[in-house]
Design a protein around this nucleic acid. Structure first.
Length: 156
RNA sequence: CGGUGAGAGGAGUCUGGUUGCGAUUUAGUAGCUUUGGUUGUGAGAUCGAGGUUGCUAGGUUGAGGAAAGUCCGGGCACCAUAUGGCAGAUUGCUAGUUAACGGCUAGGCGCGUAAGGCGACUGCAAGUGCAACAGAGAGUAGACCGCUAACUCAAAUAGCUUGUCUAUUUGAGUAGUAAGGGUGAAAGGGUGGUGUAAGAGACCACCAGUGGAUGUGGUGACACGUUCAGCUAGGUAAACCACAGUUGGUGCAAGCUUCGAUAGUGAGUUAGGAAUAGCCCGUUCCCGUGAUCUCCAGGAAGAGCGCUCGAGCCAUCUAGCGAUAGAUGGCCUAGAUAGAUGACCAAACACGACAGAACCCGGCUUACAUCCUCUCCCGCAAC
RNA sequence: AGGGCUGUAGCUCAAUUGGCAGAGCGAGUGAUUUUGAUUCACUAGGUUUGGGGUUCAAGUCCCCACAGCCCUU
């Protein structure tokens, strides 16, 4: 795991509640997924594969303390949509510059998707693993891939 | 003018906008909190200053020359004070430079057509060890071929003194020899002469090289001489080793502070404790198998500091061949913590290589599209 | 971030104090067999990860680089 570069966001997610019933949807919160244990837990999660990446997601397991504890704890407790996202880019993808670029593009894609869509009101852990081909993909393609993967995982 | 000649240095896509991220700062605002004043019997109210956490709006700022490899050297921190000695490690011409170095600068010495480049560049004339194969012999040298008017034996021929004779030649052996051949990466100075049976530093002259003494120049390495000695002392120390210099260990995940989840047949104390919407009563539960309370142990997960003002950068001047040092003036230029630079639009050109800070510096090494500047070398032509 | 180990034939591994780079499996050819397997014989296959240095001579000694793996947290 030391080879991987991870990046976590928490985002609010919206539960399987039908969208029509939601009153004013709270904007999702994006946080980073932390800790080796959390990543290992996601190993058995439901996986959806697309061309340049694969995505795994599970309902979030509430912790006792968080990095910026109070607001995060409240958000999780109040069933807002919170996404804990970890992006894994292994050394097979390229050198540090390439890996950084891939990670930032995936992050930007998620940020844009959260703005454009409404998510289930629930705390979710998500791990996105980039494939080597992602190094040569442009932003639009990557964003489309993220969208498809989330759709497959019923996250949108 | 030409050169895919030598070297040194510099630059390392740029510009504008929208949006997003880290840090910082200003203003406003909300919560928490510290503290002071006024007022009030009191609960409190009110005014002010600060801290902190968010939100909103704005400003400033945000990866490299190698950030890389982690090959050296330091700062800094802690530990079992580390002066000295041993072991280990490491370095090895001289002088200088520096916080320090195995770096750098200048010089000396040894090798390339030239610019220039390269060199672990102390000692094998202290000891121990090693050198396959080939070769006679590989380190106390050696005799295979060859050479030899010496010695022994044999044969042949000749002679006359007819002998256990002499001479010559040939062969075998003994002995001598290190000039020549041959082997090897390497065979114990070179050339010429004297000498000798043949030869040989055995002796002599010159040359090369070695050691001692000494003169001149230089801070020194060293250079150029004089003189004496001995005739030669082989290679390998990136073989053990000897000599000399340096060296305590661990590394910011160092370390300092704070807070404190779960687990305790730990210690002390004594008669209560908890719930029941405020108090009393009542009721229920726990408790001398010691509750409650205090202390101790324990350390999950966090927070702050270390964390960026530093052997710093820029300009000018001074000293120095130079590395570098000094003076004056100006500047503040990333500090994240699962880890901040992305997305979109427009414009330009040379159409963009290698590549991402993680405690901080000085070097080294490696990767690199393209462009620029300077010095020198070689060739051709003209003057 | 810090520290350590290993690179030899297609694969798995040897190589003493530096002295002709080897074995097993695999591959190819042939023999044996009616055919195949087994067995036997023979053959090919190497810039010893790359570059430089020391040495008469380097897989071995020294330096630099590259690749792979492991450990601490």
């Amino acid at each position: 795991m030391s080879l991987t570069k991870d990046r976590n966001f928490g985002s609010t997610d919206i539960e399987a509640i039908p969208i029509e019933r939601q009153l004013a949807p709270v904007p999702s919160v994006l946080l980073s997924l932390k800790g080796d244990r959390a990543f290992r837990r996601l190993k058995r999660a439901k996986t959806s594969n697309v061309k340049h990446l694969s995505l795994r997601s599970m309902p979030h397991l509430a912790q006792k303390t968080y990095k910026k504890h109070e607001p995060t704890k409240q958000a999780v407790a109040s069933k807002q949509s919170v996404l804990f996202v970890g992006i894994v880019v292994s050394k097979k993808v390229g050198n540090a510059v390439v890996r950084n670029k891939v990670r930032r593009r995936i992050k930007e894609g998620i940020v844009q998707l959260i703005k454009e869509h409404t998510l289930p009101q629930q705390a979710l852990d998500i791990v996105i693993i980039a494939r080597p081909s992602a190094a040569n993909a442009d932003f639009e393609t990557l964003k489309q891939n993220v969208y498809t993967a989330m759709k497959k995982g019923n996250l949108l």
